[in-house]
Measured scan of single mutants.
Amino acid sequence: SSRTRFTDYQLRVLQDFFDTNAYPKDDEIEQLSTVLNLPTRVIVVWFQNARQKARK
């Protein structure tokens, strides 16, 4: 499976959201998916990875 290449804009939006809320609800994931034009699955994985990094 090929890795998703995020744009600077997508990363900024995801990071800004994460800084406020590391555990987005389903409807928030749907909204991010629509706004960023990314599959919900990709967003879910991004947040999982971001939470892992934040824990270190």
Results as ranks from 00 to 15, higher is better:
48 Q>T: 09
29 I>L: 11
48 Q>R: 09
56 K>L: 04
38 L>W: 01
30 E>I: 06
41 R>G: 13
34 T>V: 08
11 L>C: 04
34 T>K: 13
34 T>A: 11
54 A>H: 11
15 Q>Y: 05
48 Q>E: 08
34 T>Y: 10
51 R>P: 00
40 T>N: 02
15 Q>I: 08
12 R>F: 01
9 Y>R: 14
17 F>K: 09
25 K>G: 10
30 E>V: 09
38 L>N: 00
49 N>L: 07
35 V>H: 12
16 D>R: 09
41 R>I: 09
8 D>H: 14
6 F>C: 09
21 N>V: 05
12 R>A: 05
44 V>C: 13
36 L>V: 13
28 E>D: 13
29 I>N: 01
32 L>A: 02
32 L>V: 06
48 Q>L: 03
48 Q>C: 11
47 F>A: 03
17 F>E: 05
51 R>K: 13
55 R>Y: 15
10 Q>L: 01
27 D>M: 12
8 D>C: 08
19 D>V: 12
46 W>Y: 04
35 V>C: 13
55 R>T: 12
15 Q>W: 04
13 V>I: 12
37 N>Q: 08
21 N>P: 01
5 R>Q: 06
41 R>Y: 12
51 R>C: 08
26 D>V: 11
45 V>I: 07
12 R>P: 02
35 V>R: 13
14 L>Q: 00
39 P>K: 06
39 P>W: 00
31 Q>H: 05
19 D>N: 09
12 R>V: 02
56 K>H: 12
33 S>Y: 01
32 L>E: 01
53 K>W: 07
16 D>T: 05
24 P>C: 02
49 N>T: 14
20 T>I: 04
54 A>L: 10
24 P>H: 01
30 E>C: 07
30 E>N: 07
16 D>I: 02
46 W>T: 00
50 A>L: 05
14 L>A: 01
11 L>A: 09
22 A>P: 14
1 S>I: 11
21 N>W: 02
18 F>H: 08
24 P>M: 02
51 R>A: 06
39 P>A: 08
50 A>P: 00
27 D>K: 11
22 A>R: 12
18 F>E: 02
42 V>W: 11
23 Y>H: 10
13 V>Q: 13
18 F>Q: 04
15 Q>T: 10
15 Q>L: 11
44 V>Y: 06
12 R>D: 07
18 F>P: 00
15 Q>S: 12
16 D>G: 14
3 R>G: 15
38 L>K: 04
17 F>A: 12
52 Q>F: 02
9 Y>H: 12
51 R>V: 11
25 K>F: 03
17 F>M: 12
37 N>S: 09
10 Q>F: 00
20 T>N: 10
42 V>Y: 07
50 A>Q: 09
55 R>S: 10
41 R>H: 07
27 D>N: 12
18 F>D: 00
6 F>I: 09
42 V>I: 13
19 D>K: 10
10 Q>C: 03
54 A>I: 09
37 N>A: 11
